[in-house]
Design a protein around this nucleic acid. Structure first.
Lengths: 210, 210
DNA sequence: TGATAAAGTAAGTAATTACTAACATTCAGA
DNA sequence: TCTGAATGTTAGTAATTACTTACTTTATCA
């Protein structure tokens, strides 16, 4: 093993503690900002929740705002619907939409903290809010519109604007999630969510079929 | 004119200036809290925007929180969809839904500040957020579900859960409004909104008809 | 003009917050 | 054990915020 190689390994080992601390700060920041808002979540509380001294927070991030930016950067990316398309194309139309709805709601749930931040911080950080939105919904929406277009080209769906159709479809579930999860804060039973999925999908399927 | 009568008139005249000041404070509070959030909107800024001294704000409201509560109380109530039902019942199903969608989006627009507050303050004031939601959407949702039930009973609509149907329908437009207006902050052209209305309504009509 | 309600100016209080400085301690690896 | 990175404790700074006090001015009406 070369000397340069050993130095690299040494650095990596030394950096692990700092990396774990940084991760804890990002997690704690996400949780508290999502539950109290950016202004309501103090650096003192975030540090406490992360189990570190407040000064350590400022050793890792030059400011509260930079912590916030890193939180958004770290948690926004999500696996793409695109990767699911091969599987979806094997299903009949109704089953495909059931799967898409289920996956979409699942993704929203996984990232409920970020969705909450998206809603609460639109006045303070409009640009970041747009980023969150586009990272989440923008790609799904485009992929879905493209899927509708394909099905229209093969005569399975009637003629409607695929982009507006995608917007309507995702909007039903996005609204369902937002109202249930963020506004009313009711953890719905799986059976309620399942019913919403089938009812909404059935309306959409019948409304879009050729 | 009796002495008691004259005293009442005198009081009314004297109170008019205070009433106007109070109204200006409520208006300014609504605007600033909706654009900066509750914590981000300072009493100093609100008073300034209302054109009064900060002390005057505290003469009218015992605290910032009480001002906020009065803002919610003052602006939440809206004319009911119920009052439109006679007119809606005279229309055929598609036209009725077009009208409902249009009115619903119009109402959301009229109260965009309050909807924005509903989204941004859910962590600080969950109970008030629920109030806003129920005052806005709750009544519309119930009236619409009832309308669907009636149409099912007379065989015009197929068998689906009317409450979930109402949720899906309103959800499409609620989501459309939220994303356009609050997240992306794009003032859409009337033609874009009109297209969304017709596309969404058509999907729903075809998906719910018998 | 006098009386009173409503509002203004100026100054201040107490608490909080993001952030910093100085010194000390802990942890990990050789 | 030594070294250096990472972190902790203590204390503090400067600014901000909701709210208050004291005195003054303005507006309205009879």
């Amino acid at each position: 093993m070369s000397r340069a190689g050993r130095d690299l390994l040494l650095k990596a080992a030394r950096g692990e503690r700092a990396g774990a601390t940084r991760k804890r700060l990002l997690d704690a920041g996400l949780k508290l900002i999502s539950s109290k808002g950016y202004l309501g979540a103090t650096t003192k509380d975030i540090a406490k929740k992360a189990g570190v001294a407040e000064l350590t927070l400022f050793r890792h991030f030059s400011s509260k705002e930079q912590l916030f930016q890193e939180i958004i950067n770290s948690y926004t990316f999500l696996p793409a619907l695109k990767g699911l398309m091969p599987e979806i194309k094997e299903l009949d139309y109704r089953d495909a939409l059931l799967l898409i709805a289920e996956k979409f709601l699942g993704r929203l749930s996984e990232r409920r903290d970020l969705i909450r931040i998206m809603h609460s911080e639109m006045h303070l950080y409009p640009a970041r809010v747009k980023d969150i939105y586009h990272n989440f919904v923008g790609e799904v929406y485009k992929t879905l519109a493209s899927y509708f277009k394909d099905l229209q080209d093969s005569g399975i769906l009637r003629d409607f604007d695929p982009e507006y159709g995608a917007r309507a479809f995702l909007g039903m579930f996005f609204s369902y999630f937002t109202v249930r999860e963020l506004v009313l804060k009711e953890r719905s039973k799986p059976s309620d969510e399942q019913k919403a999925i089938t009812e909404f999908v059935d309306i959409f399927v019948k409304g879009s079929a050729a």
